Simulated scan of single mutants.
Amino acid sequence: MKTALLDGITPAKIDKQIIGNLLLNVASADEVRQEKMLVGVRNEAGEIYRLIGATKVNSYMNAIEELEDLGLVDELKDTEAPQDGCDAIFSAH
């Protein structure tokens, strides 16, 4: 899985735990957007600051589980349609 921080947006306070729990390769935002499935992570201000991209469904599901284990909530859980280009968006409230 690949990840990128979006320029100029403050990371969430929990960000170190997020990257500690997931095995992620740092890449450019453009590279991450080319992955098959995208997960966005919002900071406390409600802005998406990190993108996580996965090629395989397994990796994607692992990322979802890890983020849920950290207490983050997928706001698109009950939605089929992607939003802001993401298949899942987790909030760090």
Results as ranks from 00 to 15, higher is better:
residue 1 M to Q: 07
residue 1 M to T: 10
residue 1 M to L: 14
residue 2 K to Y: 15
residue 3 T to C: 14
residue 3 T to F: 15
residue 3 T to K: 15
residue 3 T to R: 15
residue 4 A to H: 01
residue 4 A to S: 13
residue 5 L to K: 11
residue 5 L to R: 13
residue 5 L to M: 14
residue 6 L to C: 09
residue 7 D to P: 10
residue 7 D to M: 06
residue 7 D to C: 02
residue 7 D to L: 08
residue 8 G to I: 08
residue 8 G to S: 10
residue 8 G to R: 11
residue 8 G to Y: 09
residue 9 I to E: 10
residue 9 I to P: 04
residue 10 T to Q: 14
residue 10 T to D: 12
residue 10 T to R: 15
residue 11 P to R: 02
residue 12 A to G: 02
residue 12 A to V: 02
residue 12 A to R: 01
residue 13 K to R: 01
residue 14 I to W: 02
residue 14 I to D: 01
residue 15 D to W: 05
residue 15 D to N: 03
residue 15 D to L: 04
residue 16 K to M: 07
residue 16 K to D: 15
residue 16 K to L: 09
residue 17 Q to S: 14
residue 17 Q to V: 07
residue 18 I to R: 07
residue 18 I to D: 11
residue 18 I to A: 06
residue 19 I to W: 13
residue 19 I to T: 12
residue 20 G to D: 13
residue 21 N to R: 13
residue 21 N to I: 07
residue 25 N to M: 13
residue 25 N to T: 15
residue 25 N to W: 04
residue 26 V to N: 01
residue 27 A to I: 06
residue 27 A to V: 03
residue 30 D to V: 07
residue 30 D to G: 00
residue 31 E to R: 06
residue 31 E to L: 07
residue 32 V to M: 11
residue 32 V to R: 05
residue 33 R to E: 09
residue 34 Q to W: 05
residue 35 E to S: 10
residue 35 E to T: 07
residue 37 M to A: 08
residue 38 L to F: 03
residue 39 V to W: 08
residue 39 V to N: 04
residue 39 V to E: 10
residue 40 G to A: 14
residue 43 N to V: 04
residue 45 A to M: 11
residue 46 G to T: 06
residue 47 E to I: 00
residue 47 E to R: 07
residue 48 I to T: 14
residue 48 I to C: 08
residue 48 I to A: 04
residue 48 I to G: 05
residue 49 Y to T: 02
residue 49 Y to V: 00
residue 51 L to W: 02
residue 52 I to D: 12
residue 52 I to S: 07
residue 52 I to N: 03
residue 52 I to M: 12
residue 53 G to F: 04
residue 53 G to K: 03
residue 53 G to W: 03
residue 56 K to F: 11
residue 56 K to M: 13
residue 57 V to Q: 12
residue 57 V to R: 14
residue 58 N to L: 09
residue 59 S to V: 12
residue 61 M to R: 13
residue 61 M to F: 09
residue 62 N to W: 04
residue 63 A to C: 14
residue 63 A to S: 09
residue 64 I to S: 02
residue 65 E to R: 13
residue 65 E to I: 03
residue 65 E to C: 05
residue 66 E to T: 04
residue 66 E to C: 00
residue 67 L to Y: 06
residue 67 L to N: 07
residue 68 E to A: 11
residue 68 E to T: 11
residue 69 D to S: 04
residue 69 D to I: 03
residue 70 L to Y: 09
residue 71 G to M: 12
residue 71 G to K: 12
residue 71 G to V: 12
residue 71 G to A: 05
residue 72 L to A: 03
residue 73 V to Q: 14
residue 74 D to R: 01
residue 74 D to G: 02
residue 77 K to L: 15
residue 79 T to K: 15
residue 79 T to Y: 11
residue 80 E to H: 06
residue 82 P to I: 01
residue 82 P to E: 06
residue 82 P to R: 01
residue 83 Q to A: 06
residue 83 Q to T: 01
residue 83 Q to H: 08
residue 84 D to Y: 09
residue 84 D to P: 01
residue 86 C to V: 05
residue 86 C to S: 04
residue 86 C to I: 07
residue 87 D to N: 13
residue 87 D to C: 03
residue 87 D to K: 02
residue 89 I to S: 00
residue 90 F to C: 10
residue 90 F to L: 11
residue 91 S to F: 10
residue 91 S to R: 15
residue 92 A to W: 01
residue 92 A to R: 00
residue 92 A to C: 15
residue 93 H to G: 11
residue 93 H to P: 12
residue 93 H to E: 15
